[in-house]
Amino acid sequence: KLETFPLDVLVNTAAEDLPRGVDPSRKENHLSDEDFKAVFGMTRSAFANLPLWKQQNLKKEKGLF
Rank of each mutant, 00 (worst) to 15 (best):
Asn29Met: 15
Ser32Ala: 07
Ala14Tyr: 07
Phe36Arg: 00
Lys27Asp: 03
Glu61Ile: 11
Ala48Thr: 10
Asn29Lys: 11
Asn49His: 12
Asn12Gln: 08
Ser25Ala: 15
Leu58Pro: 00
Phe47Ala: 00
Lys62Ile: 08
Phe47Tyr: 06
Ala46Arg: 10
His30Gly: 03
Gly63Phe: 06
Pro24Ile: 08
Lys59Met: 05
Phe47Val: 00
His30Lys: 02
Gly21Val: 07
Glu34Val: 10
His30Pro: 01
Phe65Gly: 15
Lys27Pro: 07
Val22Leu: 05
Ala15Ser: 12
Asp35Trp: 02
Lys37Val: 15
Gln56Thr: 13
Lys1Val: 13
Glu61Phe: 07
Leu52Pro: 10
Phe40Arg: 00
Leu31Gly: 01
Thr4Glu: 07
Gln55Glu: 00
Leu7Thr: 04
Phe40His: 00
Asp33Ser: 06
Lys27Cys: 06
Asp33Tyr: 05
Asp35Thr: 07
Val22Trp: 04
Gly63Asn: 07
Asp23Val: 05
Asp35Leu: 05
Val22Gln: 03
Glu34Tyr: 10
Lys59Gln: 03
Asp23Tyr: 04
Asn12Ser: 09
Thr4Val: 13
Leu18Arg: 02
Thr43Cys: 08
Leu58Gly: 00
Gly21Glu: 09
Glu28His: 03
Asp17Phe: 09
Met42Ser: 01
Arg20Met: 15
Ser25Gln: 14
Met42Phe: 05
Lys59Trp: 05
Leu31Tyr: 01
Asp8Phe: 10
Val22Lys: 02
Ser45Phe: 14
Lys1Cys: 15
Ala46Met: 13
Glu16Ser: 10
Gln55Thr: 01
Glu61Asn: 08
Ser25Lys: 13
Ala38Asp: 10
Asp35Val: 08
Asn29Pro: 03
Leu2Gln: 13
Asp8Asn: 13
Gly63Ser: 04
Lys60Arg: 12
Lys37Thr: 13
Lys60Cys: 14
Asn29Asp: 15
Val9Tyr: 15
Lys1Gln: 14
Pro51Thr: 05
Asp35Glu: 08
Gln55Lys: 07
Lys60Asp: 06
Gly41Gln: 13
Leu31Glu: 01
Gly21Leu: 06
Asp35Ile: 05
Leu7Ser: 03
Lys59Ile: 06
Asp23Phe: 03
Ser32Tyr: 02
Asp35Cys: 07
Ser45Trp: 12
Ser25Leu: 15
Thr13Val: 14
His30Thr: 03
Lys1Glu: 11
Phe47His: 00
Pro24Glu: 06
Gly21Phe: 08
Glu34Lys: 11
Glu16Met: 07
Asp8Ser: 14
